[in-house]
């Protein structure tokens, strides 16, 4: 086996793990990392995105439009949830554990009752390509590119747009922002919707590659929380390097010792990173700010 094949395969595995970690985590990075809402219903926002994507594709829309619908649907649900529940809990973030756990029960079982125990898949587009002895799925590369694009878009959104700057200001010092005439309620709503929409996007992107069942969100949630927590509060400077480190550990351990060690290695890496950098990666990078 030649070196190029080995290198490409390692890169592919890394990219694949990176995409999964980053895409599952991005929505949570906004909702939990920035806003401090411990969102145990994160997986259900992902499920919502996946279901809407699959449903619209079954209805005849092309996949990219379907994913867009899934993202928007999740964002809309996000607005609703923020309005009805989360809005009342910003003062006491720990209580969001119970509320979002409740929401997740409602969403999972509600979907089971309304849509049924499973939903037909949509099939993975684009086919495969060959490098050396191995063939790879092209869609996986698309996922990796999508993960990078999402990171870039988030960086741009929170640093270069008026909304992004207002959102960060509002979340850091709400009363100050309010005093300066910012409609903080609206900003909170939009930020939460943004996080929910990102979760929906992850769901939509992974919908073609996965079994669609009401409990599918559960497969994302551990990776998402772990990435966000060790990343810290900054979406771009936290989630991206955290995803990178964890993806190296996970793909490396998985290819070396199998999936079990990939998972256990991931968890051990989390413990070590937290021990070394008690404020998370972005806390370390942005020492002066914290």
């Amino acid at each position: 086996m030649d070196i190029a094949t080995l290198v490409f395969s390692a890169l592919y595995q890394f990219g694949d793990a990176f995409a999964f970690l980053v895409l599952s985590a991005c929505g949570l990075a906004v909702i939990f990392g920035m806003m401090g809402v411990i969102n145990l219903a994160h997986g259900e926002f992902i499920m919502c995105g996946a279901y809407v994507t699959a449903a619209t594709v079954h209805a005849g829309l092309p996949l990219p439009l379907g994913i867009l619908c899934g993202t928007l649907a999740s964002a809309c649900v996000g607005v609703l949830v923020e309005l009805l529940v989360i809005r009342h809990l910003y003062e006491r973030p720990l209580d969001t554990i119970v509320a979002t756990w409740g929401l997740s029960l409602i969403a999972t079982q509600g979907t089971l009752i309304m849509v049924g125990s499973t939903m037909a898949g949509v099939g993975t587009p684009f086919g495969s390509f060959q490098v050396g002895a191995y063939s790879y799925s092209i869609y996986r590369i698309v996922l990796f590119v999508a993960a990078l694009a999402v990171l870039g878009a988030l960086y741009a959104l929170f640093n270069w747009t008026r909304f992004g700057v207002l959102a960060r200001a509002t979340i850091q010092v709400p009363h100050m922002a309010a005093a300066l005439g910012v409609d903080t309620r609206l900003i909170y709503s939009l930020t939460f919707a943004c996080g929910a929409g990102l979760a929906g996007l992850a769901g939509g992107l992974y919908a073609p590659t996965m079994t669609l069942v009401p409990t599918m969100g559960a497969t994302f949630i551990m990776e998402a929380f772990v990435t966000v927590v060790i990343g810290g509060a900054d979406v771009f400077l936290g989630t991206a390097p955290a995803g990178g480190i964890l993806a190296i550990v996970k793909s490396g351990m998985t290819s070396w010792q199998g999936q079990l060690f990939g998972q256990i290695g991931l968890l051990i890496a989390v413990i070590i990173v937290v021990r070394v950098l008690p404020k998370g990666i972005s806390g370390f990078v942005l020492r002066e700010r914290t």
Partner: peptide, 8 residues
């Protein structure tokens, strides 16, 4: 579903 609603 009831459990969820009660918790919220």
């Amino acid at each position: 579903v009831f459990m969820g609603v009660l918790l919220v």
